[in-house]
């Protein structure tokens, strides 16, 4: 009988996050022959996300619906995941390294005295051993990690690094609704305040437009948002821009703040302090727009424009609109 690997489909306002599909691809990398079981939990009808997980490569899905799962709590999710682990006895568990993944996986690992490898960006087999690569020092370096014994392979994966498998609309699999009595929650979520702007999640974005002190004001960031929307990307910022209140700290990219690895990173008015570079240096293609030709960011950029960003950005937006018009 093939081994089982459990992956967690993570819902965000009713929809699966992209990283959920990536966990399925990661599970295949752990063991190509394994049976992949997707777990989806929440408080509504979970047929669609369960079905989506199967079409992205899971072999079957388990759904758990309970009123106490309407908001994430580590205790609620922890109870469900551990109950499913008891029943299925998986050889591996993969979850996204998201707000929820970071929170619940160490709880489970600690309860069950397991090793846990957080924030993996690559998974390989070397001599039958599974090797996880993960960034350290905010991407200034990397380490390869293994589990010391033959126990459970337990890891979270960084969004946007392990490509999801092709969607296959013809795939089918069993979807089982499982009952778990989620109870004794000690933490109560009273209110969820949505502050994030609509659109693409910064940590999952394929294109990031980031602004620094050079953008000069919150008003100045509007052009970045316009460009991001045009390209289907997200807006980020340097610490300088956040400290100066041009934007929220949740947009900060760098050694403190988020580490992002998009396909395209456009740095606008960012000088390129070492702390900022740590957060974006592993982007596939980097574009720098800065009026200071000596700015450090140009050492890291694939393409650079030395110029006034207030002149360059409107032109870039115009050009992208033109491009968009040509394609459609």
């Amino acid at each position: 009988m093939s081994k089982k690997i459990l992956v967690i489909g993570e819902l965000q306002q009713g929809d699966l996050r992209k990283v959920s599909y990536e966990t399925i691809a990661a599970a295949k990398q752990l063991d190509v022959d394994a049976e992949i079981i997707a777990l989806v939990m929440g408080d509504g009808d979970l047929q669609k996300p369960a079905h989506d997980m199967i079409q992205y490569g899971a072999d079957r899905a388990i759904t758990v619906t309970h009123a106490n799962l309407s908001n994430y709590t580590s205790e609620g999710y922890g109870q469900v995941i551990m109950e499913v682990m008891r029943e299925e006895n998986p050889a591996g568990i993969i979850m996204g390294h998201t707000s929820i993944g970071k929170d619940v996986t160490p709880k489970i690992a600690s309860r069950l005295e397991l090793g846990l490898i957080s924030d993996a960006v690559a998974i390989e087999k070397e001599d039958d051993q599974v090797v996880f690569t993960r960034p350290i020092y905010s991407g200034k370096a990397f380490e390869k990690k293994v589990m010391k014994d033959d126990g459970l392979l337990f890891a979270t994966i960084r969004p946007n690094n392990i490509s999801a498998l092709q969607h296959d609309a013809s795939r089918t699999g069993d979807i089982t609704a499982k009952k778990v009595d989620v109870k004794d929650l000690r933490t109560i979520v009273k209110e969820v305040i949505r502050k994030k702007t609509e659109g693409v999640d910064l940590s999952e974005a394929k294109i990031v437009i980031a602004g620094g002190r050079g953008v000069k004001s919150a008003e100045g960031f509007k052009a970045l948002y316009e460009l991001a929307e045009l390209l289907g990307g997200a807006v980020g910022a340097s610490r300088g821009a956040c400290d100066a209140d041009y934007c929220e700290y949740s947009l900060q990219i760098g050694q403190t703040g988020k580490v992002v690895t998009p396909d395209l990173y456009i740095a606008v008015g960012i000088s390129g302090a070492i702390q900022h570079m740590a957060g974006m240096s592993n982007s596939k293609v980097i574009v720098a727009i800065n009026s200071d030709a000596e700015a450090n960011i140009f050492n890291m950029a694939d393409y650079g424009i030395v110029g006034d960003l207030f002149e360059v950005l409107p032109l870039l937006i115009k050009e992208m609109k033109l491009e968009g018009a040509l394609i459609s």
Binding site: G115, M147, K148, D149, G151, A301, D302
Partner: peptide
């Protein structure tokens, strides 16, 4: 005793400065 082990540490490939248009 640790449950996981680090078997290698390495630096990312250094990036060449690109083109200034």
């Amino acid at each position: 005793a640790a449950k996981t082990a680090t078997i290698a540490v390495f630096l990312p490939p250094t990036k060449q400065a690109g083109r200034i248009l």
